[in-house]
Amino acid sequence: MTAAAPGPGDALPELSLRLTRADLVRYAGASGDFNLIHWNERFAVGVGLPNVIAHGMLTMALAGLLVTRWIGDPGAVVGYAARFTRPVVVPDDDEGVTLEVTGTVKAVDDEGDIRVATVAITAAVAGKTVLARATARVRLPA
């Protein structure tokens, strides 16, 4: 399918994204979120986490790539929401973890002079979902 004329039930091309400690450090700098649980294993374990965890907002941004790569222009996104249900634990190794992202068009609606596709997104690590109710709304090309 293409983003030109999607319909309900259409699946978006899946994404498989690797996430390592280096990605967390880079996101910390870019976002300004230097919370210790996202890069300091000693601290993360000390507060009861199994290890360092990814920023929820990084996971959300990565899952959103499913939609922006499909539509081509991130400026077409008019809404995006997600619930953070399970921490993404990122080990201190070269492999990191892999985020599997899938999505399905739920609706296409005319809203005034634009058409908007609503996409339900799933994001999982090792088969377990890490986001719930992840939904993006994108303006379709005229």
Partner: peptide, 9 residues
């Protein structure tokens, strides 16, 4: 770059 957004815009 940090979130892997490669869109040229």
């Amino acid at each position: 770059l940090a979130v892997g957004e490669g869109a040229s815009v």
